[in-house]
Write a protein that binds this DNA or RNA. Sequence first.
DNA 1: CGAGGTTTTAGACTGTGGGACGAAAACTAT
DNA 2: ATAGTTTTCGTCCCACAGTCTAAAACCTCG
Lengths: 194, 194
Amino acid sequence: MLDVVLQVRDEGLAALAAGGALPGGELEAGETLEASARRHVDARALGHLEQLETRSLGQQLVTAYLGLVASHVETGGDWHPIARLPRLAAGHREIVLAAQARLRAKLSYTNVGFALAPETFTISELRDIYAAALGHDVSATNLQRVLVRRGVLAPTGDHRGPGRAGGRPAALFRFSSREIQITDQFGFLRPPTL
Amino acid sequence: MLDVVLQVRDEGLAALAAGGALPGGELEAGETLEASARRHVDARALGHLEQLETRSLGQQLVTAYLGLVASHVETGGDWHPIARLPRLAAGHREIVLAAQARLRAKLSYTNVGFALAPETFTISELRDIYAAALGHDVSATNLQRVLVRRGVLAPTGDHRGPGRAGGRPAALFRFSSREIQITDQFGFLRPPTL
DNA sequence: CGAGGTTTTAGACTGTGGGACGAAAACTAT
DNA sequence: ATAGTTTTCGTCCCACAGTCTAAAACCTCG
């Protein structure tokens, strides 16, 4: 049982790892896989948890889980930007990269973003989170239009005063659901409209 | 270790199951997961194999694999259309449905189709395979246009004479690659073009 | 050999989703 | 007031996929 816990931090998307290994431990008797995954991390901080893959590392079978922590949550522990991971135990690096790939893919066809963002946020803040997780620039305009049209994002009605640099006050948004949902119709091969 | 083996047959998409249980068995010492998955089925017939998920069934952990068999391959065994599965052991039905969902999703953004189709085929034949796997009608025109533009399908140059009903001879196609590849750019949040 | 039926193929039209761009709005600081 | 910043709104445009229709190529039957 291993956990890959990801959070968007100042230095970009980062993973939790202490002593050159991902958090984890043995599965206890009668324990479900997901319960075990939660037991080995600070479960309160997790905004989302899902199974990644199972592989044989050395002599034992290891099931890896992907956990996401919202960017505003204060967390202790050793965070390492994914771009420059330290030396990790055998196989752990591949698992982290698989977790990153899974997150990047799901950001575009699900509402997983809710697990990376605070309860309410401005579009610019959300854009920064997406940009850090995806590793490339994201247009705030398009991000808002797409997510609102899909019903993933809803305005709260409130606004937040500008920072010290000035600028127009930004509208606050929230994710309409904090359960994971598929929001994209997968491009092609849709059922005929009838 | 359990295998969900799917094939498009006359009655539609069907799964292999004998005696109310999916094929499978214990993992042997020193054996990789994938090797074990192959050992429990007719590995020669498989056009594709990938890990599905791991869950605890009763007291033991079970890792399920999804295997695909091309529609023209002659196979023995107990095939059951997914639409009306018989009674299965606890949890097995959910695994079959997860396998079906995985296949349906991947058909639209990868080239997995190669694992369901023969070496060469007409667009109509491919459309029937996709329709059976997806569970709804598929437009042959769109299927051809999309897959050819993506480079997934390539014409062989040959044609196949019409059946007994007459009709224009159909051009033969093949999948340009028989390794699984992601062929869709996932709708939105693409990197900026620069 | 021609007429009608069948299947495949090709083309045009349309609608939608999303990328790019620019202008307007709302604020701060000088 | 003026300049600078950030957010927001609107427009243009392109690529992709769904729909429809017509043409092409073959069969069978009279």
